[in-house]
Design a protein around this nucleic acid. Structure first.
Length: 461
RNA sequence: UCCCCAUUAGCUCAGUCGGUAGAGCGGGUGACUGUUAAUCACCAUGUCCGUGGUUCGAGUCCGCGAUGGGGAGCCA
């Protein structure tokens, strides 16, 4: 591979007068009688590099026939641009076409709908919006690791294949090597005892339970990896395969947990604004006017904390009428959450201490006997972005709750052991990574912040 | 899974009262220009999602199906 330079570094620190090579994809070409211009984008930044072709250049005629979307290499000299629109340009001396296009190339130099681009997800990385989305996604992945590393958290890898199906976090995708056409049977049902793992297994819907075990030894841990849910969810914010960040902290309570979540979100907002400035400016201009102000304001503000009980009182006093009933003991519906975060608070908010009947078995029971130490972080537009809790560390109370909820204790004996010996208070949360990216970029559909989204009926690419 | 909406040229869309299909972009040809998703002129392009029905006649009305979108539930 011959040496070449990325557009980003050329624009940042232009080596004027120097011979260089760039490689990328043609965004547009404008051919005139005395001169031609090619905009070349290599995905290193939103901005394309203007390449100037002089008719005296060898191969000029062929170069002028290059279509939008072609992969090219350009050797030439970088020079200050005499025209407005770009500070520098590449005066081409030789153009190499690696891959041309014909008239059937679907990406044109025009606006395309996100619906259409989803149908050509294999080509959309060449579109400005998706270049920006995937660069921000990459940068924020790094930011997540940096945030936790700065705070002494240990990055742990929890299993992707699991035998737990009792976490209450959603439907499992089955993992099996049994012959589906004719599985071994026991009492008419497939005998998973003869499956690969000797029991029924599936893809993990959460790494939380294992994360708790690691925290109860390493003190502060986090996971960051793919998560799978076989739910028939058809919404702009659900996917069957998504990435989740799950920190877990020993000797922490619910207030500590919310503080960590707040610091975390604020850190990520600042990171996006500082480290992804050009892409964020693109989103601010093209996707959601006011985005930069919104993210900046969030980074500088305190997050509101409100008990579930108070939230219910606010909703009962609301002047608007809701489609779903509001009453202590009922879960908050999306319309209620949106009212709270968008109308009552006007920004991100934690709702804390939910009724125990509507939450998972592992959440710590509060002294009032009717609520658990759960929290949801709600943000405008996206809704629930974080869900977390302080975990029940008292063995007797945990077992009693599992008993009440009909959860098999034998299969979770290892989990109960962590409470049996050396138990400690601990808390954690789960952040939907794609929802974070949606919030930071203004993109409104989760299918547009994952390169190749998996949703019901869709596993193409 | 439920509710609502949509499906017309490669893409984005218009199409009146039911009378046999249009624009912009893209493509082709040419002109012109240190151009900026260039501009101008000309040219070509259709299984009107599929299917059944109503009608003299259906892109248009009705039924069924498919696909997509929005909302809801589940949740991150």
């Amino acid at each position: 591979m011959s040496k070449y330079q990325r557009v980003l570094s050329l624009l940042k620190n232009p080596p004027l007068g120097t011979g260089i090579t760039v490689k990328g994809w043609v965004r547009s070409i404008r051919v005139g009688k005395g001169v031609a211009f090619i905009a070349v984008n290599d995905g290193s930044c939103v901005t394309s590099l203007q390449v100037v072709l002089d008719p005296g250049m060898p191969g000029y005629e062929e170069a002028c026939k290059i279509g939008t979307g072609s992969a090219v290499g350009v050797e030439g000299v970088l020079a200050a641009s005499p025209a407005a629109g770009q500070p520098v340009e590449l005066r081409a001396e030789r153009v190499t076409v690696y891959g041309g296009v014909d008239e059937s190339y679907p990406l044109q130099k025009k606006h395309h709908s996100f619906e259409f681009l989803r149908s050509i997800a294999h080509l959309r990385p060449r579109a400005n919006t998706f270049g920006a989305v995937f660069r921000v996604r990459s940068a924020l992945s790094f930011a997540i690791h940096r945030f936790f590393r700065e705070r002494g958290f240990v990055y742990v890898h929890t299993p992707i294949i699991t035998a737990n199906d009792c976490e209450g976090a959603g439907e499992l995708f089955r993992v099996t090597t049994l012959d589906l056409a004719d599985p071994p049977r026991i009492e008419g049902k497939p005998d998973f005892g003869r499956d690969f793992f000797g029991q029924a297994t599936g893809l993990a819907v959460s790494g939380q339970l294992e994360g708790e075990l690691l925290a109860c030894g390493l003190s502060s841990i986090y996971t960051f990896g793919p998560t799978f849910r076989a739910e028939n969810s058809n919404t702009a914010r659900h996917a069957a395969e998504f990435w989740m960040v799950e920190p877990e902290t020993a000797f922490a309570d619910l207030a500590d947990d919310a503080d960590l979540a707040e610091d975390f979100i604020r850190y990520l907002c600042r990171f996006a604004l500082e480290e992804c400035a050009e892409d964020m400016a693109f989103f601010d201009k093209q996707i959601e006017p006011g985005l930069i102000h919104r993210i900046g304001a969030l980074a500088d503000s305190e997050f509101v904390r409100m008990d579930y009980t108070e939230a219910i009182a606010k909703l009962e006093k609301a002047s608007v009428s809701f489609q779903y009933p509001v009453s202590w003991g009922l879960d908050l519906q999306t319309e209620h959450e949106r009212y709270l975060t968008e109308k009552v608070v006007g920004g991100p908010m934690f709702v804390l201490n939910y009724p125990k009947e509507i939450k998972a078995f592992y959440m710590r029971q509060n002294d009032d006997g009717r609520t658990v130490a759960a929290m949801d972080l709600l943000v405008p537009k996206v809704g629930e972005i974080i869900g977390g809790s302080q975990r029940e560390e008292r063995l007797d109370l945990l077992q009693a709750r599992m008993e009440q909820m009909g959860i098999d204790q034998a299969g979770l004996s290892w989990y109960l052991d962590s409470r049996r010996w050396g138990t400690c208070p601990h808390a954690g949360f789960g952040l939907g990574f794609e929802r974070l990216i949606m919030y930071l970029t203004g993109m409104e559909n989760i299918r547009d912040v994952i390169p190749f989204p998996r949703t019901p009926g869709h596993a193409e690419f």
